[in-house]
Design a protein around this nucleic acid. Structure first.
Lengths: 205, 205
DNA sequence: TAGTTTCCATAACGCTCGGTATATAAGAGG
DNA sequence: CCTCTTATATACCGAGCGTTATGGAAACTA
């Protein structure tokens, strides 16, 4: 019985780096969205041919899921660390500043892979869409819990609903990336973040 | 010399209502976005065949522009009337409540035709994308001017930047429609609007 | 009714899509 | 060196895309 563990490496080794190819694929999906990213554009950006892509990643949908994993791990890491901030306001500040930095960092495509992939899809991309939406829901739950704790700790006015505040914060994020995708300048996006933080609720309110 | 004015109606009249067909096309574009809306789905929803569509509307892009006109005229009318509200806060309230009502009105597709068409497009839809973005910019200008007047009238704190506040309001709208497209319930969307309005700046702040 | 104009339906066009079969090249193990 | 396994390159597949040519039916004017 041969398990995958004691299998040795035989045959011709592949000539490209899987991680680099995946990073290139991520950039294409990020710019185009799942459906508009064609296999031709993907393979060209990845520097490999279609059979190599299918051998290494399975198919377009599997490639997208791996790119989405990479995106959440490398590009949305600031969301995780932001949740560890000591106050709800600092959570919001780190989330918004982190998103702003990512959107204005030249080198990154504009917009958000999650938002772009949760909208505007034909019937065959429905499973992709629902997965992206499910992942967003799980991050959302973490923020709601964080804000509920903040409210119990007296950080937030009693009149504020933690679920509503979470949706509010996420809406700002979504508006930020939509506007970035629409060509808004760095300064315009910074104004959006500054104004949002200026309106963020305080205990004194 | 025969002008278009004194030309009479000859030949077989068309069997469908152009306005109804355009309304049906709008619903398809609204649900799918420009690129994912196929001619097959469009013609089926409109109840006509492809040659009829091309004869009446030109091509897919021209059909989309006419649908976009209809969308702005019939579905975004509340934005125009909202701008006439007496105070900046009422402007924001009417805009947000109007958008909420539109998103929760069953019968309308979820999401926003403008947002869905300004993202996630391949190279061939670039002209559509830029047109949608340009239309958004012109509405934005109206809101900025309205908020500048409000600030001069003392309605808004001096610390608030009207441009930033405009982008903030639009971001909430965009987040609202993204979340609606992601399947958020009417109550969740209402909480988002309530929270946003609760945080809206007042003179006293 | 004759003539003309326009509409409708079918089918096809050229193209791109995601995905693959086939054949050749290349490295690892014996 | 030979064999075996795997990667690569080319070409191709069926299906769907937006768009259009064609033929016949329908309804207007005269």
């Amino acid at each position: 019985m041969e398990t995958i563990l004691n299998r040795v490496c035989k045959g011709r080794p592949r000539e490209f780096c899987v991680d680099e190819a995946l990073a290139a694929a991520l950039r294409v999906f990020w710019k185009r969205g799942y459906e508009s990213a064609s296999m031709a554009e993907l393979t060209e950006a990845m520097g490999i041919t279609k059979p190599s892509l299918y051998a290494a990643f399975g198919n377009k949908e599997a490639l997208f899921r791996k790119a989405l994993d990479l995106y959440e791990r490398e590009k949305l890491g600031f969301m995780q660390t932001a949740l560890a901030a000591p106050t709800a306001r600092e959570v919001a500040e780190r989330v918004l500043r982190g998103a702003l930095e990512m959107q204005t960092n030249s080198g990154n495509p504009k917009g958000c892979l999650g938002v772009i992939s949760s909208l505007a899809c034909g019937p065959e991309a429905e499973s992709i869409r629902s997965e992206v939406i499910a992942r967003r829901a799980s991050s959302e739950r973490l923020i709601v819990e964080r804000f509920e704790r903040a409210q119990q700790g007296g950080e937030l006015p009693d009149t504020i609903d933690p679920k509503g505040l979470t949706r509010f914060l996420i809406a700002i994020l979504q508006g930020l990336v939509v506007q970035a995708g629409g060509g808004a300048s760095s300064e315009e996006l910074r104004k959006l973040v500054d104004t949002s933080l200026e309106l963020w609720p305080t205990r004194a309110k």
